[in-house]
């Protein structure tokens, strides 16, 4: 009865300046026709998605900020328990890219130290208004040893991919942790058996 219907639960966060497209990334980009429903008026807190990776059933709980980013007041309580962070900037707004380093420091200060990160350059559909080259995005990600993708919430480019990649990285870490624990257990069992054998 209490059997869990999934193997792993990963809590993910979207972080970045206001206006970069975090809310649109969380939801399929809804045009203005739906943009005025009751739900979008009160706003979404988080969503649950189920994916499968390496035969494991994984529940993603993905949180959007409630606009606290505008005041740069994202603190420890928002980061609590987070295992993955999507750090988003807007390729048409220089400032949002410059602030990536600020956000990385904020994450370092408040989030769990082994949190997986990924940088997203969003709005890549607006190439004519681009001010941040893809190379610069790749560069900053490389400097910090983080994955990078350009995305468009509007034309649905790399959104799914981004969540899968981040989940994959977390799973990798998780599996190696689990392995360590298992091998430790086996080790303990072996010594016990040996003891049992000689007494």
């Amino acid at each position: 009865m209490a059997k869990k219907s999934y193997d792993y639960l990963f809590k993910l966060l979207l972080i970045g300046d206001s206006g970069v497209g975090k809310t649109c990334i969380l939801f399929r980009f809804s045009d203005d026709a739906f943009n005025t429903t009751f739900i979008s008026t009160i706003g979404i807190d988080f969503k649950i998605k189920t994916i499968e990776l390496q035969g494991k059933k994984i529940k993603l709980q993905i949180w959007d900020t409630a606009g606290q980013e505008r005041f740069h007041t994202i603190t420890t309580s928002y980061y609590r328990g987070a295992m993955g962070i999507m750090l988003v900037y807007d390729i048409t707004q220089e400032k949002t890219f410059d602030n990536i380093s600020k956000w990385l420091r904020n994450i370092e200060e408040h989030a769990n130290e082994d949190v997986e990160k990924m940088i997203l350059g969003n709005k890549c559909d607006m190439d004519d208004r681009r001010v941040v080259s893809k190379e610069r995005g790749e560069q900053i990600a490389k400097e910090h040893g983080i994955r990078f993708l350009e995305t468009s919430a509007k034309t649905n480019v790399n959104i799914e991919q981004a969540f899968y990649n981040l989940a994959e990285d977390i799973l990798k870490k998780q599996l190696s942790k689990d392995n360590e624990e298992t091998s430790q257990n086996i080790h303990v069992n072996n010594t016990q058996e040996k003891k049992g054998g000689c007494c």
């Binding site: 809804s30 739900i39 807190d45 988080f46 649950i48 189920t50």
Partner: peptide
């Protein structure tokens, strides 16, 4: 976490409304 895919709204008077996780329509 019994849900496959679902969205939770902000809280209004202790109630969270559920929405589609993909197209956001609801409640």
């Amino acid at each position: 976490f019994a849900f496959e895919n679902v969205g939770f709204s902000m809280t209004v008077d202790s109630i969270k409304y559920l929405a589609c996780a993909d197209c956001e329509r609801g409640p």
